[in-house]
Design a protein around this nucleic acid. Structure first.
Lengths: 352, 352
DNA sequence: TTGAAAGCGTTACCAT
DNA sequence: ATGGTAACGCTTTCAA
């Protein structure tokens, strides 16, 4: 039986209770709590026993206060002129302003889109004594993969954002299951279209893993469940509204009997302008990705029939939580970090 | 120019900086910060000027630590044998376990369903020195409304959960826009059904505001956008799987040509059993509410075509944040507290 | 290998 | 009406 008074601790046990029960000083308790060296095995065991006996759980708020811990997090985003990336950047700004009062600083940096080398350079320029964690939204290439691994090796937490980098050792992926998103789009498309015919798919880039996965999911459902709808080869729009607006008219003229369009990437503004200019056929079904001012308007006017989306606010919040938890080497709530595949119709858009 | 040293504060300003710049003590700064009495007007102004000049923002973590603030929150849930309420209760448990280490205790108490008096009694039994805030999921009646107002008058924060109580002075509503949810269900129903015919609506109770609002939204869209589908009078299932299972066969026999079923309340297990037993017609469209183990299975097997849902985890998290913010009289992030109207198809259900 | 004591930013009690 | 000072639970020197 260890020395020390055994009066029941009031409320949650603190390190003071641990010290008392284990018969050691606060400093020693802190050493074993934080795995610091210079403590005898037997002492460590005494403290660990006290921890177990009392069911001690550290108060992170107090710890961070004493430690003057600050989390410095960075978001690397493509410098694309599309509304989804804009929304992400805006969320980094807004949440950064709020979190600045909670020992957390967020920063966003842009790199040219579809440019692996730019991401590599940015990543390689990061130092662990300036940056605790980074969220990367970019293409999966061997060079990017290696740069991610180097950053992690230097002690920087890394999550992939929107598009996964599964070949790398990134700590987590923050985004939706894009294969399932593609399946979802196909299901809606198949059930909304009432007559057989061809369906057009607009994609972004072969480099973008999220786009490839969506296309794969879309094709899978179309083939098995809606064989009367023929999916045409992808049109590569590079997330560029102007390019899409330029390409589309010819294609629609070439396949006038098209029954549906799946816009699986960004650049919806171009699609919308084209559809509005040509006058959309009443029975054409259009399904796009990401709820933005552009797609909201299209849903409202009925030009788009459905939008598959992932919430930019949630993406950023989840990335922040994951990056902090990784930096602190503490566990997190799996279920809270799953980004849902949202479906929006004109009726269930959130206000404003 | 006030007395005191003016060396630039390093990092974020603290009350020490305020005290120095305003030339007063910490205690006085604290008094004005917390609106405590016993400070001269001129002193208050000196401090307020310092606050403004330095852009001071209080560190709530440190404040809560010193204050040993504990939030004691209560959830009043109907004692209904349905999976959605079960999910809510489970979330209160799970999140309560996590939050217990963050100076927050959650408790859930059951009251008989559709029993206003039980809620009134529960509410009236609450004392502000045992309970800081309460979330109420129940029918909107004058008696409930008055009890809510009394609780608030006693200094207890109150939010309505799932079903709003707009006639009361509840601090907030935590839940989806049920009118929009009904509209959404109708939109899917209308677009999934390919031939004219009657549509059946199963509701819960005339007392439940959420059910009434869903029905209203459903009817609105059906009438204007899908007039070829005739919406039959509601079947009242009282959220009771057994009752629903018992009522339904006769109705389906009476209207064999029914093209769609909108299960707008709880008790899906009964509907599912009935459909599975009778053998669902291939072209019957079934849309229900709330993603639960029961509805997940129905979506997977294709018995349900779509499920409108609100995430139980988010509901509880949002209620907690709102209740805390109200108790502390601090503002909150509107956009984060909007509960989304989720649409689930077999393809976009979250795993497990 | 261990402990005492001074913070971290805020609150609260007791003086004056 | 104001100030000093000991907490809150934890971390971090600095000594021993």
């Amino acid at each position: 039986m260890p020395e020390g008074d055994l009066s029941p601790p009031t409320g949650k046990p603190t390190i003071n209770d641990l010290a008392r029960v284990a018969g050691v000083s606060l400093a020693t308790v802190d050493r074993v709590l934080n795995g610091r060296p210079g403590v005898r095995r037997t002492t460590i065991e005494k403290v660990n026993k006290a921890i177990a006996d009392l069911g001690y759980i550290r108060d992170t708020a107090a710890a961070n206060l004493a430690r003057r811990r600050v989390y410095r997090l960075l978001f690397i985003l493509p410098d694309a002129a599309n509304e989804f990336v804009d929304a992400l950047a805006a969320q980094v700004d807004v949440q950064g302003a709020q979190l600045s009062h909670q020992r957390t600083t967020l920063a966003a940096r842009s790199v040219p889109p579809f440019d692996p080398q730019a991401i590599v350079d940015m990543l390689d320029g990061l130092s662990p004594d300036e940056t605790d964690g980074v969220a990367v939204f970019g293409p999966e290439t061997p060079a990017v993969r290696d740069a991610v691994n180097r950053a992690r090796a230097r002690g920087i937490a890394v999550v992939s954002l929107v598009a996964d980098l599964p070949s790398s050792e990134r700590d987590h992926f923050v985004g939706i299951d894009n294969y399932a998103a593609g399946r979802t789009a196909a299901r809606l498309m198949g059930r909304f279209i009432h007559e057989p015919g061809p369906v057009l798919v607009i994609t972004g880039s072969r480099l973008a893993r999220d786009h490839l996965e969506r296309r794969a999911g879309f094709d899978a459902v179309m083939t098995t469940d809606f064989p009367h709808l023929e999916v045409l080869p992808s049109v590569e729009g590079r997330d560029d509204p102007d390019l899409i607006q330029q390409l589309l008219p010819d294609i629609l003229r070439a396949v006038p009997q098209v029954r549906g369009i799946y816009s699986s990437a960004a650049g919806n503004a171009g699609l919308l302008r084209c559809l509005e200019r040509e006058g959309r056929r009443g029975d054409l079904v259009v399904i796009a990705h990401e709820l933005t001012p552009v797609s909201r308007r299209a849903l409202t006017t009925g030009v788009f029939d459905a939008v598959i989306s992932q919430n930019a606010g949630h993406l950023v919040r989840s990335a922040v939580r994951l990056l902090k938890a990784t930096a602190d080497r503490v566990p997190f709530d799996e279920t809270q970090e799953r980004i849902r595949i949202d479906i929006y119709l004109q009726d269930n858009m959130p206000p404003e």
